[in-house]
Every structure is written in C-alpha cells, then in structure tokens.
Design a protein around this nucleic acid. Structure first.
Lengths: 204, 204
DNA sequence: TGTACATCAGTGAACGCGCGTTCACTGATGTAC
DNA sequence: TGTACATCAGTGAACGCGCGTTCACTGATGTAC
C-alpha cells in the first residue's frame, strides 16, 4: 500500500483495525507488530510513535475489546422477556457471542502477559463490562439499584462471570465439539448455554 | 550439563520434566524446545527423536496434565463429609488448586493451537478428567451409577465444568486480584470458590 | 500574509536475537546366528 | 561366546526465518509573531 501523502493521517486507527484483522485470521499467537504495520501500509518503525511498543498496541485492542464486550452484554440483555433472569441469560449468550465472533481478541483480553495489565483505561474497561453483569445480578437478587452489593451478592456475580467465561473459553477451545449437533458447533453451543445458565443462576 | 555417556538413558522423561519446569518459570509463551533440550543436557536436535516436533512434546505434557488434573479432582472429592454436594465442592477446589499449582501447564492444556488436539491419548486423558466430574454430578443428581446420563444431566456437567474452569482461568489471569484479602490472592480465591459452587450447583 | 522554526509523524536500513528443524554424521546398543 | 550388523539415540553445525526495536534521518504540519 503506497500512500500519496507522507503522513498517514489516521495511522492509530488503521493499526488497531489491522491488529483486529490479524487476530481474527491468525489468532492471538499469530499477531505481529510488523504485520500490522504492513497492513496499514507503513514502515515497521511507525507504530512506535503511537503505541510505544507492541504491548501498548495490544493493550489498546484489549481495552476496546472490553468496551465492545459490554455492548454485546447490553444487546443480549435487551430481550422481549424483561424478567431479571432472562436478562441474565441474554447477557450470558451475549458474552458467548462476543467470544465466538472475536476469538482472537477475546483470548488476548485474558492474556495478561501480553498486556499492560495495570493500564488505567484497560482496568476501567474491564470494570465497565463487569459492572454490566453486576447490575443485572443485583436486580435479579432483588437488590435496589441504590443499595451497594452485599458480599454474598458479589460472590454471585463472580460465579456468574465464571460460568459464562468458562463456557465460552471451553467452547472456543473445542472442548464441546464432540457433542455438537449437525448444525455446527456454534449453533449447538448457543443453544446449550441458556439451559445451563437457567439451571445454575445463583440462588437468591 | 556434560553427560559421561553418549546415550542419555531417560531423555524422554528428562525432556518432559524440563518442559514442566519451563512452563512453571516462564509460562506457556515462554516455552522453547531448545531450552528444554538445554536443560536436559542434550543438543537441540535430540528431542526430535522422541517427540517428532515441539507440538509432540507439548501434547504429551498436556496429556499428563489432564491425568494429573484427575488426581487433583479425586483428592479434592475425598472429604470427611461424603455428601454428594460436598464431594463436588471438593472437586471444584481441586480443579482450582491444579490451576494455581501448575499455571503454565494448565494454560497449555487449553491452547489447542499448540497441541495435536486430535491425539488419541490426549483426548482420552481429557475424557478421563471430565469423567470424574461427570460421575460426581450424576450421583449428586440422584442417578444410579449404571444408568446413562440424561441429556439434561450432561448439561449440568458442562455447567459445572464451565463454572470451575472459568473461575480458575479468571483467577489465574488476575481478574480477582483487586478483591483479595490480606492473606494473598491464592488464599482468598480458594476461600471464595466453595461458597460460589454451593450456591450455583445445578438444581436437581 | 509571510516566515522562521519547533514539533510531529513518518522512513528504511540495520541490529541482535533465538527459534524449530534439517542434515550428514557417529557412537552405543541389541540381537540373530 | 563371539561376531556381524541393523537400529537406535545422540551430535553439532547450519539454514532460513521473522521478529521488535533502535537509529539517524526527513518530510509535513502547525503556530508565534
């Protein structure tokens, strides 16, 4: 890619887009900074001006990933049936869909060794996604929005997160492939989760 | 490490041990075949005679990992209180302990891109560990040992696996660090899990 | 409106690295007779 | 018990690779006056 202008103009965004593409095509281990630069049509030294290092770039990708995950959770919760439990089931499916739609990014988000795990923006984005789940569980357990979560309810949130995260992670790793139906793994796995979630929602 | 004999004698085992050490010290991404050879006191070309390729070696490490995981599950289930639910909670803690004791190995076991994921021994070992959980859930739900699992109960097993796996994975990635007590993350996390598991065991 | 100049955002070549695997080879072992 | 010889388990040097980062640099932009 030859540019007509010396300055790219939107290199930061172009690199983030390229990174996402690479993660989708080659997975987390297949990512390289040079390839991202190549796809953005820029020399291998250029990314340093915007992200400092490869870790910096990936941290930004992960941060945006958590924000996108939050959108998936919201969208999943937005169902016809507005009961608190079906909102949570919807969120669970949203979580799974995010993982299946963006496997490379999803895995990156939980590979602290590849990220600046203490980056404030990253932490805020994690917290924001987590907060989405937290609110829903809080409502489900009958808490009022203005009340803080009781420690027991914190545990319920962790449990729910663990459940959907574990399911998504195992599904991505192919551990459920053997029990998939004819319609493919993705379809089977998306059907399985609601039943499981309903059966294992934390007891009030 | 200079050997006195040209033949190592137990190179296969030595390489597996070295691999485990490296995984412990440097994590899954820090593993290299050359380093394993170095630690076994052997040239970089030697491992090929025993494992074909780096993937072959790691597949064997992962296979043994799943067998070890099964031992942790059994040990966890072996509690004073022999009720079905406390057996399951014990297993959950066993799963978590395995992950915390062997983080690199644990992560490797769920990185299909690094393994011969269709290797029969590997698949058998996965199945064996999974079977341990399956039996316990089956008993918990009141099934007789000779009866096959109903589809609903299969779902309960997947849910339980997802729960403990997700919890372990998130704990390893440091996602619970912020809420750890003074005694350290490991201690906090081992205390949290039983309460969560009890609250979320599948309904019969 | 023009201009000097600091700053920003790129280049492209090179550095140093360590990797997994291949290759032709050799030393040691085991087995058939 | 000895021996020929196939097979096994190593060596060590080299191959080819692509990586992230550094470096001295240059072209473009923006701003103060």
């Amino acid at each position: 890619m030859r540019r007509d202008r010396y300055h790219h103009g939107a290199l930061r965004e172009a690199l983030l887009t390229a990174a996402d593409e690479i993660l989708t095509e080659r997975g987390t281990d297949g990512f390289t900074l040079r390839e991202a630069a190549r796809r953005a049509g820029v020399s291998p030294a250029a990314p340093a001006h915007h992200f400092g290092s490869v870790t910096g770039l990936l941290t930004e990708v992960a941060t945006r990933g958590f924000l996108e995950l939050r959108r998936y959770l919201r969208e999943g919760a937005d169902t016809d049936d507005t009961s608190a439990s079906s909102r949570i089931v919807g969120m669970a499916v949203g979580y799974l869909r995010f993982a299946l739609d963006h496997p490379g990014r999803f895995q990156l988000m939980f590979r602290r060794a590849m990220l600046h795990s203490q980056d404030p923006s990253l932490k805020a984005a994690v917290r924001a996604a987590y907060g989405e789940l937290e609110q829903a569980i809080h409502a489900y357990l009958g808490g009022r929005p203005d009340e803080p979560l009781r420690p027991d309810d914190q545990a319920a949130v962790l449990g729910t997160w663990s459940l959907v995260h574990g399911f998504s992670h195992l599904a991505l790793d192919g551990k459920f492939d053997a029990m998939a139906g004819q319609k493919g793994v993705r379809d089977s796995v998306e059907r399985m989760l609601p039943a499981i979630a309903l059966r294992m929602l934390p007891r009030a």
